[in-house]
C-alpha cells in the first residue's frame, strides 16, 4: 500500500538525531514488546509479512508520532484481535485491572 512507511525520497524530515551509547531498550516495556515478536511468531499468530503490513496499516499521523516498539505493540493488538486470539474487551479489561492494582 502507498502508506506513510514508504519513505524513500521524502524530504524535509529534519536532521538525523543520534544518541551516543544508546541502550538496546530505553524502557523495560520495549524489551517485553521486542520479545513478544518471537513468542507470537513461534505460536504462528503471524509471519513477518503480516507483521509488517499491520504496521503499514497504522494511521499516518499515529505512525509518525509513535516510537518503533509502539509500532510493534500496535501489531499485536491488531493482529491478535483480528485472528480471534484475544478480544478488544479482554485487552481493555486487563489494562483497567492492571491500572487499578497499580494505584
Amino acid at each position: 500500500m502507498n502508506g506513510i512507511h514508504d519513505m524513500g525520497g521524502m524530504q524535509c524530515m529534519g536532521p538525523i538525531v543520534r544518541e551516543e551509547n544508546e541502550p538496546r531498550f530505553h524502557e523495560e516495556w520495549e524489551g517485553r514488546v521486542f520479545g513478544m515478536f518471537f513468542t507470537n511468531f513461534a505460536e504462528g499468530h503471524f509471519n513477518v509479512d503480516m507483521f509488517r503490513h499491520a504496521i503499514e496499516r497504522m494511521g499516518p499521523a499515529e505512525y509518525l508520532e509513535t516510537s518503533y516498539y509502539e509500532h510493534w505493540l500496535h501489531v499485536y493488538e491488531t493482529v491478535l484481535v483480528e485472528r480471534g486470539i484475544l478480544t478488544q474487551a479482554e485487552i481493555d479489561e486487563k489494562i483497567a485491572s492492571l491500572r487499578q492494582a497499580g494505584d
Binding site: W29, M36, E77, L80, K94
Partner: peptide, 15 residues
C-alpha cells in the same frame, strides 16, 4: 507506568 507500558503488560499477562 506509562499507558504504553500498561498496554504491553496487559498483552503479556493475557497471553
Amino acid at each position: 507506568p506509562s499507558d504504553t507500558a500498561m498496554r504491553a503488560k496487559a498483552l503479556e499477562t493475557l497471553l
